[in-house]
């Protein structure tokens, strides 16, 4: 595993001082329910950023705002220095067209709790789909890359299998390979191990750990405190749509300052 998971991506020279994700007072409501009530945080390039908190705390919603699957109602959200979903001219915001949003999403990989693999395509075809359809990569090239990526996640022999023929852990690893095929600069993980049998969690976490070591910027919504402590560079504890506490995972997890954090951790640790 000396070769890095992100593969032969030509990294464009980027200003390292620009945060990969920057959130300023982000609000999001679903009807009368205000799910996010002003989120301020910063994800540096190359770091593993963990979001923890009880269900309903808004962590998954926030993650989905980052690639504009959800529209925010107030505040500003930047990915790699660019506004998400809008273009600013003067002090006016213009909504981006669907095609422009799609263009930005190419650079942001996402892994879902329920895998969401395309069931009518084989594992290899799942990985090939976006490069061929979105980037116009030739099928032969895409297949070669898919084979490489599936090998990296330990599923070289499953390339021809349909998702229904794979276990949950295998499906999730294919989903990670599928996201990586687009050579993203940022990976979003939405509780990637929550739908898995305990036995299968390890395989997926191993792949994620490997990805983190390759220098990928990752935002991870998770209940795996062990993973957060070992691999995470920053950790945020959210509750009720606000950031309650943040810091280095080891500090927050071993010595929480806030009462709410203490109560939550005493239940999950």
């Amino acid at each position: 595993m000396t070769e890095k998971l992100s593969g032969a991506r030509a990294v464009a020279p980027r200003d390292p001082s620009v945060p990969m994700v920057k959130s300023e007072g982000v609000h999001k409501s679903f009807g009368p329910v205000e799910v996010l009530q002003g989120i301020d945080l910063e994800v540096k390039a190359g770091e593993v950023f963990c979001l923890i908190g009880p269900s309903g705390s808004g962590k998954s919603t926030f993650l989905r705002c980052i690639n504009h699957l959800e529209k925010i109602n107030a505040g500003r959200l930047y990915v790699d220095g660019e506004l998400v979903g809008y273009r600013q001219k003067g002090d006016r915001l213009y909504e981006l067209k669907d095609s422009e949003v799609a263009l930005k999403r190419r650079d942001i990989g996402m892994v879902f709790q329920r895998f969401n693999l395309f069931p009518h395509l084989t594992a290899a075809e799942n990985v090939m789909e976006a490069p061929v359809q979105v980037k116009g990569v030739s099928k032969a090239q895409a297949r070669e890359r898919a084979t490489q990526l599936l090998e990296r996640v330990g599923l070289a022999d499953k390339a021809g299998n349909y998702p229904s023929q794979l276990s949950g852990g295998q499906q999730q690893r294919v989903a990670i390979a599928r996201a990586l095929a687009m050579d993203p600069k940022l990976m979003l993980f939405d509780e990637p191990t929550s739908a898995l049998d305990p036995e299968l969690v390890g395989d997926v976490l191993d792949v994620m750990r490997d990805l983190a070591e390759s220098g990928m910027t990752m935002v991870v919504v998770t209940h795996e405190m062990g993973f957060a402590r070992e691999v995470g560079d920053s950790l945020v504890f959210m509750d009720g749509g606000v950031v309650v506490e943040s810091g280095h995972p080891r500090e927050v997890l071993t010595d929480p300052q806030h009462e709410r954090t203490k109560a939550f951790l005493s239940k999950v640790l």
Binding site: N67, L69, D98, S99, A102, L103, K104, R105, R106, I108, G109, M110, F112, R114, N116, L117, F118, P119, H120, E129, A130, Q133, V134, A175, R178, A179, M182
Partner: peptide, 27 residues
């Protein structure tokens, strides 16, 4: 067709038309 399919396809940067044609309609 599960909504997660559309989401996954959009998250990969596929357009509405491509999502419909390549992902949703075949299912």
């Amino acid at each position: 067709v599960d909504e997660g399919q559309t989401e996954a396809s959009h998250a990969l940067g596929m357009s509405h038309a491509k999502t419909l044609r390549r992902i949703v309609i075949p299912q």
